[in-house]
Simulated scan of single mutants.
Amino acid sequence: MVAIVIFDIDGVIRDVTNSYRRALADTVEHFTEGNFRPSMAEIDSLKGEGVWNNDWEGSQELIYRYYEGIGKSRSHLRYSYEEIVHFFQCRYRGRDPENADTWDGYITQEPLLVDLDFFHTLTENGYYWGFFSGATKGSAEYILTRRLGLKDPVLVAMEDAPGKPDPTGLFMAVESIKQRNNIQQSLPIIYLGDTVADMITISRAKSIKPDHDLRAIAVLPPHIHQQDNLMADYSQKMLDAGAQQVLTRVTDFINP
């Protein structure tokens, strides 16, 4: 076999431009009483800080920053984190966010960036593969099993491990793949993601397991495609954060 490949999901397997990012913008706009709706560039800037992989926390942070900008402190805001999460989930999942059978929110409209054949090709080419994502397990499984048709894929989601750039979830996904396939030998580990936090995850993994062959590959998120200046800037940011290679889309991994 060639390597173990772990994929992020949002921006890599599915286009979240008009789903997660839209829900984030909706949430910030709602809790700033219509006074501030972050642009894609402003969301990119926040994620470029490398610590806001969780979009609920990112929404809260942008709300905080707006109010700080008009002279109000975080401690005086009346919005709870739970309220922010609930509003976000109602936009993203739908009116009944706990029942996947009735979801009618933005998640149902997400374009897929791969198909089932992509994973068949990976296997045929000697790769073991799985997923480590900051998405909730319900959201990730909805895409992987319902939309893509994967059967019981290795998945480490938000509920399973600390958020990125902590590499614990990456190691969990790799170990699960090794156990399922009885892998005894040491194989390269490749992580494909679309954020600074994804790249830093590999850097931190290397510091914990310096004897492992760990590689970070960046995938450019769909919302910057066709914008050469943004693609160049984003690529450089990923390289600076530790990416060894930058792909325009995840399918370029097997179709360079």
Rank of each mutant, 00 (worst) to 15 (best):
G105E: 03
G105M: 05
G105N: 05
G105Q: 02
Y106H: 04
I107L: 02
I107C: 00
I107A: 00
T108K: 04
T108H: 00
T108Q: 03
T108V: 06
T108I: 01
Q109Y: 01
E110H: 05
E110I: 07
E110L: 09
P111S: 10
L112T: 08
L112G: 11
L113I: 08
L113C: 10
L113Q: 08
L113V: 14
V114E: 01
V114K: 01
D115E: 09
D115H: 05
L116Q: 07
L116P: 01
L116W: 05
D117K: 09
D117T: 11
D117C: 02
F118W: 04
F118K: 02
F119Y: 07
F119E: 03
F119V: 07
H120R: 15
H120K: 15
T121V: 15
T121S: 13
L122F: 10
L122H: 12
T123Q: 15
T123F: 10
E124I: 13
E124Y: 08
E124T: 14
N125M: 14
N125S: 14
N125T: 12
N125A: 10
N125E: 15
G126H: 08
G126D: 09
G126S: 12
Y127T: 11
Y127K: 09
Y128H: 11
Y128F: 15
W129L: 09
W129E: 02
W129A: 06
G130H: 10
F131A: 14
F131P: 11
F131T: 12
F131H: 10
F131D: 06
F132N: 12
S133Y: 02
S133C: 10
G134W: 04
A135G: 13
A135T: 04
K137C: 13
K137S: 14
K137G: 13
K137M: 11
